[in-house]
Design a protein around this nucleic acid. Structure first.
Lengths: 221, 221
DNA sequence: CTCAGTTTGTTCCCGCGTTCACAAACTCTT
DNA sequence: AAGAGTTTGTGAACGCGGGAACAAACTGAG
């Protein structure tokens, strides 16, 4: 069986494998073992093999994987053999950075429009695109067949922007605003939460410091 | 038992609860049930209660939670009652955005330095801070007691920057560069991977499209 | 004081994900 | 051609996290 259903945890790692394979290709390496690829991707080799086995049997026992072939198969599985048009809403500091971020525009994704509520900024050029009004969203989505929307607005505006996106036909949302978005079934939301990440680090850091301080105390009583 | 050990999945949700509580406080709501708070945080109420139970018994049966009190307890558990100095390395588009991002500087975190390898940019003011040279890292870390570093450099420089951070005494790293970082034991790394998130969305989007197309076909044979 | 109503804290069970360990399959030498 | 050496793909065991369901504990009315 090939691609009947891939576990979510595996899907989340496929982009990492893909990146590792691209690095190997850049280094002119045409073949590799699961051990090498796993090291390059920062995971256990057994996990890597199991992940790849969900896609199919693309390796050769006793030999390893053909880098170019495997790269193509993962790309195809993720859906990067086609081009995904993307709209970014909210061109503040973060939206500006995203529009210019190369990893965002290259490799299967193409930013087709930048939208902002602030009409003073309309027409301004960012990353080769003119900032347009939010009311053009629906037309742009239909014209380019946009399925993925990126929200980089302040938290207060995020839910409303999200609703309008879904209304316009977008079914996948990447949310950078620090808010929980509620969406109907069939719509995917992924969030990138910068301050949460910092807080999680702080928790562990505090715990490390606490343990270090308790090192001398050991047992009480 | 209070804070002996909190599951990782719970730790990752605490910042979300904290944000929800802050919203409630802004709305002058001083008390809430697990059901309400869970809805506000976008999780199951049973999960919320179990998460909070790892911190201690801060609610009152038959009544609910005191918003202000619970907010303080979570803040304390995460470690936000103290101030965490942070350095950001790599002041390109993304680093610039991070330096200006309010969620980054407020709420327990304080950006104390912006570093960049490009000496042409040294002295430039970003978010009220002068961009400084990367060789000042160690001095800054010692002066301010920095424990958390943010990497917003290109992928090629990330590992080297990470190594120097750890050498300077940093033990928690937030990595925005699209690379796997290898670090010694005792150092925490969290990554924010923008293009991976997009690719995961693309995978699900493609799958939705595939299912919709197969809707007419149904069974083969 | 007692009883009905409410909401938390916790126990139990199930399913997913990770890892180990090994069989299957390939290459290469002799 | 046969056997030794590799490396993949997978079956099985294990542990963690999620959710339902319930007991414990509090409020308030009579």
């Amino acid at each position: 069986m090939s691609h009947s259903r891939i576990p979510e945890a595996t899907v989340a790692r496929l982009p990492v494998y893909l990146r590792a394979l691209n690095s190997l290709l850049d280094a002119k390496i045409s073949s590799c073992s699961s051990e090498e690829l796993a090291a390059s991707a920062g995971v256990n080799s057994a996990k890597l093999r199991k992940d790849l086995s969900y896609l199919g049997s693309y390796g050769t026992r006793g030999v390893g994987y053909d880098v170019e072939y495997l790269r193509y198969q993962i790309s195809r599985e993720i859906g990067l053999t086609q081009d995904w048009p993307v709209v970014i809403v909210g061109i503040g500091n973060l939206g500006h950075a995203l529009a210019n971020y190369s990893g965002f525009t290259s490799r299967g994704f193409r930013t087709v429009a930048l939208l902002d509520a602030d009409s003073n900024r309309h027409g301004e050029l960012v990353a080769g695109l003119k900032i347009r009004g939010f009311n053009e969203l629906s037309a742009i989505v239909h014209e380019h067949g946009v399925a993925i929307g990126v929200i980089a607005t302040p938290a207060a505006a995020a839910q409303s922007v999200c609703d309008r996106m879904i209304e316009a036909g977008i079914r996948s949302v990447l949310n950078f605003a620090p808010t929980v978005l509620s969406v109907p079934d069939g719509v995917d939301v992924r969030k990138v939460d910068l301050s949460s990440e910092l807080q999680i680090l702080a928790y562990h850091e505090q715990r490390k410091a606490g343990l270090a301080a308790a090192e001398g105390t050991e047992e009480s009583a």
